[in-house]
Amino acid sequence: MIAKPAQSLTLFLLLAPALLWLGLLIVLPHVEILILSFSERVAPRVYAFGFGNYLEFFTEPLYWRTFARTAFMSILVTALTLVLAFPIALYIARVAQGRLKAMLLLLCLLPFWVSELVRTLGWMILLRETGVISYALRAVGLASQPVELLYNDGAVILGLVYGGLLFMIVPLANALESLEPAVVEAGYDLGGSRWTVLRRIVIPHAMPGIVAGCIIVFMLTVGNFATPVLLGGKNGLWFTEQIYAQFITRFNWPQGAAFGMLLLLLSSAIVWLGLRLTGQSLGTTLKQA
């Protein structure tokens, strides 16, 4: 009984950093943004409560089209990343042994030692009109004049998939590693083809890892700023650019705040839908990531 206050003080002190982190850096700014998003400018420097900022989003086609495009492209990027990462993760988890395995994971990690900006600039050096690939195409005679590979959807998708690959491979490799080799052998032994074993045994086993990887990659992609801006240029049309424009260029903070809230709602809704469709719970998924 006497120890109780001391115990609860210890608990409080231990939790304090996490609570401060959550409260000051995540909850408080979001509450602020939420409040901000509901304030409408009625006269110069006079603001009142209202839904105008949200109405603006639905009445102006550029906004909601950019929004839908961002959602669609992010899903596409996530799917492409999954398809690319699955064989790599399968190799790392099931074929590679010892040093080779550590080496391969390190190779996946290596690009992340430089900043995202520098990595994206690297892609620009490769893809631009006067860049490496354009030069190579001309050198082997496949193109007669410089080829501009930047500033299109393909370049944006390429950059985003590249940036998401590691975050897909790690949870996938984790999930696949826990699959007992005898279970896969039993799948073949009972007459299953490679495809049957993959579809009925390997993929269902890896499902928590697949969902975890998809959530991470999707979140990173939807919220990405540098890659669509640098590789997509004016054609990037990513929703984060709209938020940036409202806050920085137009100096319309309430409108930017409303867009921010909408992006949060969008990504949460898609993640929730994804979990429902695959029948996974957030708990088991988080364990895998």
Partner: peptide, 27 residues
């Protein structure tokens, strides 16, 4: 292995944990 008229009971049994008992047998 998947074309041989031979089936194996593994040391660890290697039942498919992602399937029900009936699905294991019907696999």
């Amino acid at each position: 292995a998947n074309r041989r008229p031979v089936n194996m009971v593994f040391q660890s049994l290697a039942l498919f944990p992602m399937m029900s008992v009936g699905e294991n047998v019907a696999y």
